[in-house]
């Protein structure tokens, strides 16, 4: 199987999370944070475009696939919620992405994309980590909100460790590293690592199988409607 096959799920992850982060613009808790969230959103959009370019026309891939054809993780499509929810989603994803991209080897096109993205991802992880510390160990309210987000998003983390077609990366060691890092950050943030299941008990699968959560359909409807309303148009 060609390594290019992995480009689709990775691109979908990046596109969908970029879109969610861009929803924050004009709503962030402070002006400085508007800039930070937009930077991360733009990095991810760039990653998505670089990956789609390996596969074909980026707009056809982003705008003209149906919900069931998207291969992104359910984690990244989760609605923003409050700032703690968004930061926790960022933390779970960026720690995983940094570990994953750090393990992509070889010289093929996905390796080139990963080599650039791993630097961006390190910054995203740092941003999420710094905020997790401040929210977890900030006020009673911020602690409560962040623990709630950690607990609520935990069930979407098991999917991170599904094998990625085309990438020869052992997922069990990656899972161990991820859990160790997340455990360390949560502990420093005075938060508790959840003990519940990290995946749904439903054999239909999850995002990597094109099975998504309900809010994703609405997100796509909004994202795609203008493009699809004008078939063949150039923008």
């Amino acid at each position: 199987m060609s390594a290019v096959a992995a480009a689709l799920p990775l691109a979908d992850d990046a596109l969908v999370l970029s879109h969610r982060l861009a929803e924050w613009l004009g709503h962030a808790p402070e002006l400085e944070e508007e800039l930070a969230l937009a930077n991360i959103s733009l990095d991810l959009l760039g990653q998505a475009r670089a990956c789609y370019a390996l596969l074909g026309d980026e707009d056809a891939l982003a705008y003209r696939r149906e919900e069931r054809e998207f291969r992104n993780l359910q984690l990244v499509e989760q609605p923003n919620g409050d700032f703690a929810h968004t930061i926790t989603r960022q933390l779970f994803f960026s720690v995983w992405q940094e570990l994953l991209f750090g393990r992509v080897t070889g010289t093929g096109p996905p390796a080139a994309v990963a080599a650039k993205a791993v630097k961006e991802t390190a910054y995203h992880r740092d941003h999420a980590e710094q905020w997790t510390l401040r929210l977890g160990d900030g006020t009673e309210e911020s602690h409560r909100r962040t623990q709630r987000a950690v607990d609520a998003l935990w069930r979407y983390t098991g999917e991170l460790f599904q094998p990625l077609e085309g990438l020869d990366i052992a997922m069990e060691p990656l899972r161990r590293d991820w859990r160790a890092r997340i455990g360390d950050i949560l502990a420093r943030a005075t938060l508790t690592m959840p003990e519940g299941p990290d995946a749904d008990a439903w054999s239909a699968g999850a995002g990597r199988q094109g099975v998504h959560t309900e809010s994703f359909g609405r997100m796509l409807a909004e994202m795609q409607h203008l493009h699809r309303s004008h078939p063949g148009a150039v923008w």
Binding site: E30, L31, E32, L35, A36, N39, D126, H127, Q130, R134
Partner: peptide, 17 residues
């Protein structure tokens, strides 16, 4: 200039801005 709660965040905000 910019606003930040502490030096670590100030540095990151400065980079972003």
């Amino acid at each position: 200039s910019l606003h930040a709660p502490d030096a670590v965040m100030a540095l990151r905000n400065a980079r972003d801005l």
